[in-house]
């Protein structure tokens, strides 16, 4: 009788002792796993580290005016819009003038590597999802979890496995930023005009010819929208990533929070915003440009 009342009053939760045991078992299991395999996993990520360091050095060791000229050229190629290019030059001049050049280069390098990785893994996965409903059914809930799980939670196992540093930071950023690229690649390919695909089949195109000649090119505007969102999300993670040792504009912001330095925080924050606006304008302008001939006029 008494027992029955108790489960009405309080949720019949697991015994505290049992819960503690479970927690211990999982945590120690994972700790053992990371002690045993951590070094191998770290070694597996070595090429990534090399790539990261190389791109950072490249940006830091190149004279600033050459970097600026290269950025301006890339923006011009991407957007074909002189206003965007002038905006980029002015922003970077200001960033340099306020002493944030080096950190900006570090963040830029991190974003570039992260975007490259996201494209390298995200596009094939998105294509796979578009080709197979089964793959889509499996991957979609994983993406949902990746996007809604607070990033601090998956920082824990990453840090346990790989410690603090550039690579774990990068992995955390990629996990956070890759879902929109995967989703939009999948969507873009699924939305390709059925009649164009049918025409491609009717002329005897192989799967490869269809993928590279029709599906990817026609999905490109959507894929570019995915790249744009991925970059924006990666930039949003800059401060969080700095907590586990990613150098760049995030670190001064973190320091500013801890030491209550308003000016430092605002300046570095503005530099991140400037980067975001630049990436956004350039990728969007590029996306629009490749779409120019594609909008069905009738």
């Amino acid at each position: 009788m008494a027992k029955e009342e108790s489960w009405i009053e309080a949720f019949p939760a697991m015994e505290r002792g049992d819960l503690r045991e479970l927690r211990k078992a999982v945590d120690s299991g994972f700790r053992e796993f990371s002690a045993d395999f951590g070094p191998y996993i770290e070694a597996a990520f070595d090429p990534l580290l090399t790539f990261l360091i190389w791109s950072e050095k490249l940006l830091l060791n190149t004279p600033w005016f050459i970097v600026l000229a290269a950025l301006a050229a890339i923006c011009w190629y991407g957007s074909k819009n002189i206003k965007v290019v002038i905006g980029v030059i002015v922003s970077f001049m200001l960033i340099g003038y306020f002493g944030m050049w080096e950190n900006t280069m570090r963040t830029l390098s991190m974003i570039l590597v992260c975007t490259t990785l996201s494209i390298a893994f995200g596009m094939p996965l998105g294509i796979l999802m578009a080709m197979s409903n089964k793959a889509q059914a499996i991957v979609t809930p994983i993406l949902d979890v990746m996007q809604t799980m607070p990033s601090f939670v998956y920082l824990i196992p990453v840090v346990m496995l790989l410690g603090i540093g550039k690579v774990p930071g990068l992995i955390a950023v990629v996990i956070y930023a890759i879902p929109p690229l995967i989703r939009l690649t999948n969507l873009g390919i699924r939305l390709v005009d059925k009649e164009v695909l049918e025409a491609s089949d009717a002329f005897g195109a192989s799967k490869r010819q269809k993928l590279f000649g029709v599906q990817i090119p026609l999905a490109l505007p959507n894929i570019m929208a995915g790249v744009n969102q991925t970059i924006m999300m990666a930039l949003a993670m800059v401060v969080v990533a700095s907590m586990i040792g990613v150098k760049g504009l995030g670190q001064p912001v973190l320091k500013a929070i801890n030491n209550q330095q308003f000016f430092l925080g605002v300046m570095n924050g503005l530099a991140i915003v400037a980067l975001a606006i630049i990436f956004d304008r350039v990728t969007q302008a590029y996306g629009l440009r490749i779409q120019k001939h594609r909008n069905k006029a009738h």
């Binding site: 009649e195 164009v196 049918e198 025409a199 009717a202 005897g204 192989s206 026609l218 594609r294």
Partner: peptide
């Protein structure tokens, strides 16, 4: 064989044209 057959023996024109927009 079907791909070869479609490449060399039979071709098609579509109602909504089915052209490659890019």
């Amino acid at each position: 064989e079907l791909r070869e057959f479609r490449r060399h023996n039979i071709s098609m024109v579509f109602q909504k044209f089915g052209l490659l927009p890019h």
